[in-house]
């Protein structure tokens, strides 16, 4: 294992220390592991969090137009209720707080306990569970679909709605709608390595790839020979379109998993666009880059969201965070 770290045990603290120094506009409490910005009184605030190792998710999305707070856990381990509650309390502006939670058992349970603590303190909480990954089949017999790329879209669009002064119920409804209109599918060429473990989550031969991966180093649905970008895009989009008919205008996120050259992500984006436009689907908005990563995994995920005029306007609204900024 070769990493730019001091020790695995100090990784999260060291990374937060650097994040704080690089982004002085944000409040970073390294000891309590929360990243916050000041709430606007009378407005809804957004809090998200989850295991570390998916940077820039979630701390990189704290800022005007998006999240008010992020609570990073240990690598691939959910944050704890007291930590989430501290973040919720710090950013409560009196109009309620939306918790954006990826659908993993640990995240869901810890955020549920944190919501009870907030309720005890008189802070109104709404929760949106993001579960966009179509690679998880038989979802009634599993913990349900995983939350992946659509998390960025939920946080951006719901954040814009909160910035507009919408009430908690409306912000939560918009967040739910974004999740319902989004689907994702991921592939890996090489697994990432958790620093405390020291070896990759799974091993692929030089000519193999993994289809239907998650973002925690868990194996995917199946293994196959490495394929051209065109076939990988088609395989992912076939799985997405089989689950949600694609039509009209869409937003496409081609997301790098942390160890993929941006050049290759643009190759994938070209193939995704060609596939969609050949079927009469117009790519109206796009995002290409590393947004929901899995440490140093090589590969990508493709997220497609069916747009409405309202969702497109909220996507276009100004945002100013470490990882996403435009329009200000």
């Amino acid at each position: 294992m070769k990493k730019l770290i001091n020790t695995p045990g100090t990784l999260l603290t060291d990374a937060l220390t650097g994040f704080a120094a690089a982004h002085p506009a944000l409040d970073v409490d390294v000891r309590r592991r929360i990243v916050t910005r000041a709430p606007t009184p009378g407005r809804v605030s957004l809090v998200s969090g989850g295991g570390s190792g998916h940077e820039p998710l979630h701390a990189g999305f704290v800022g005007p137009g998006m999240l008010h707070a992020a609570c990073p856990g240990e690598v691939f381990t959910s944050p704890v209720p007291g930590q989430i509650h501290a973040a919720t309390t710090a950013v409560s502006g009196g109009a309620g707080v939306l918790h954006v939670v990826k659908n993993y058992t640990g995240d869901v349970l810890n955020f549920a306990l944190a919501a009870e603590l907030a309720d005890d303190d008189g802070i109104e909480i709404a929760t949106v569970i993001v579960d966009d990954d179509v690679a998880v089949e038989d979802s009634t017999h599993t913990a349900g679909r995983r939350g992946t790329g659509a998390t960025v879209l939920v946080e951006k669009i719901a954040g814009a709605a909160a910035e507009n002064g919408e009430k908690l119920a409306v912000v939560a409804e918009i967040a739910t709608e974004v999740n319902a209109r989004s689907r994702s599918y991921g592939v890996a060429l090489r697994a990432g390595t958790v620093p405390a473990v020291g070896t990759p989550g799974f091993t692929l031969a030089e000519d193999e790839m993994e289809w239907g991966i998650g973002i925690h180093g868990e194996p995917g649905r199946r293994r196959g020979p490495i394929a051209p970008a065109r076939d990988i895009a088609a395989g992912a989009l076939d799985a997405i379109a089989a689950d949600m008919p694609l039509e009209g205008e869409v937003l496409v996120l081609v997301n790098g998993m942390g160890g993929t050259p941006l050049m290759e992500l643009y190759v994938m984006f070209a193939e995704v666009t060609a596939w969609l436009e050949a079927r009469g689907v117009r790519v109206a908005r796009s995002l290409v880059g590393d947004y929901v990563t899995s440490l140093d995994m090589t590969g990508c995920s493709i997220t497609v969201m069916r747009l409405t005029g309202t969702l497109r306007d909220l996507w276009d609204a100004p945002v100013e965070t470490p990882a996403l900024r435009w329009g200000r």
């Binding site: 959910s78 944050p79 704890v80 640990g106 349970l109 810890n110």
Partner: peptide
Amino acid sequence: ATGGASGP
């Protein structure tokens, strides 16, 4: 102190 699902 635990995190994950097992803590809760």
